[in-house]
Amino acid sequence: MAKGTRRSSETPAPQVVWTPAPRTVIAHLEGDPSGNDVPYDKLGQLIVLHNMLEVGLSMLLSAVAGVHGHGMSFPIISALDYNRKCELLKGFAGQFPNEKARIRKIADLAEKIGKGRNDAAHGVIGKTKEQGWVVHRMAGAKLLSQGKAAPLLTVQELVDLSTAAADLIERMEALRTEFEAAHAAVQSRNDQLTEIIRTAVTKAQAEARAPD
């Protein structure tokens, strides 16, 4: 192709948005001034909030399932994979028609935040002129090493997910409280009914033993 000829029929070469220069992009030591503008805190904030969200998700799942006060139920639920907890929460949603949409929205948003957390924890941080600080998704480093473009997530998107995570933790806590109160009310009614039946049976037995 002659020099200066436009390559209009060809796929444009991918923009290089990250290079393995640890002194300017990654692996800064604490106190290293060259890393002051790298938004490590934004990534860390999402990871920490995700950890809090996962605990809240376990507690909500226990409450929705009605096993929140049953011995080893919480440790068992806590041991489940994060995505599995989201799937189970969606499954339970069908049992509560009045709260189905609310529960599913919580589970869907939790899944979205979980994906963002994985990008923050396992992605490769870099910078573009157009978007500023970005994170290449988990396969980014491999793709870039092959000279290919890598999917990006902006740091601002991660900040937005952190805000959503903090809000979601509050919403989950409110829903958990409602479910625990509802289950407690049902248990109380059951206990009252059991006591009424027990009293009736005791009275009937006493009358049957009484002399004529």
Rank of each mutant, 00 (worst) to 15 (best):
residue 82 Y to T: 10
residue 120 A to F: 04
residue 138 M to C: 05
residue 80 L to S: 09
residue 107 A to Y: 06
residue 126 G to R: 00
residue 137 R to W: 10
residue 91 G to V: 01
residue 139 A to F: 03
residue 70 H to V: 15
residue 77 I to C: 00
residue 79 A to D: 08
residue 149 A to I: 06
residue 99 E to P: 02
residue 95 Q to S: 15
residue 135 V to S: 04
residue 74 F to L: 15
residue 109 L to I: 06
residue 108 D to G: 02
residue 96 F to G: 07
residue 116 G to I: 10
residue 114 G to D: 01
residue 145 S to V: 11
residue 76 I to G: 05
residue 145 S to Q: 15
residue 93 A to V: 09
residue 76 I to E: 13
residue 120 A to E: 03
residue 154 T to I: 07
residue 118 N to W: 04
residue 148 K to Q: 14
residue 119 D to Q: 03
residue 155 V to T: 11
residue 79 A to H: 01
residue 104 R to D: 11
residue 159 V to C: 14
residue 100 K to T: 15
residue 80 L to W: 11
residue 78 S to C: 13
residue 121 A to M: 08
residue 70 H to K: 15
residue 100 K to S: 14
residue 96 F to I: 08
residue 139 A to Y: 04
residue 133 W to C: 02
residue 98 N to R: 12
residue 139 A to K: 09
residue 92 F to T: 09
residue 146 Q to T: 10
residue 92 F to M: 13
residue 107 A to R: 08
residue 113 I to H: 01
residue 108 D to H: 11
residue 71 G to S: 14
residue 69 G to R: 14
residue 157 E to D: 00
residue 131 Q to W: 01
residue 156 Q to H: 12
residue 94 G to Y: 08
residue 121 A to F: 07
residue 141 A to C: 09
residue 90 K to Q: 12
residue 118 N to D: 13
residue 84 R to C: 05
residue 85 K to T: 13
residue 105 K to D: 13
residue 103 I to G: 04
residue 113 I to V: 14
residue 107 A to M: 06
residue 155 V to G: 06
residue 158 L to G: 01
residue 85 K to R: 15
residue 127 K to E: 03
residue 159 V to W: 09
residue 103 I to R: 08
residue 156 Q to F: 12
residue 119 D to E: 10
residue 111 E to S: 15
residue 72 M to N: 12
residue 76 I to Y: 07
residue 149 A to L: 02
residue 154 T to W: 04
residue 162 S to E: 08
residue 146 Q to M: 14
residue 121 A to Y: 01
residue 147 G to A: 02
residue 141 A to L: 08
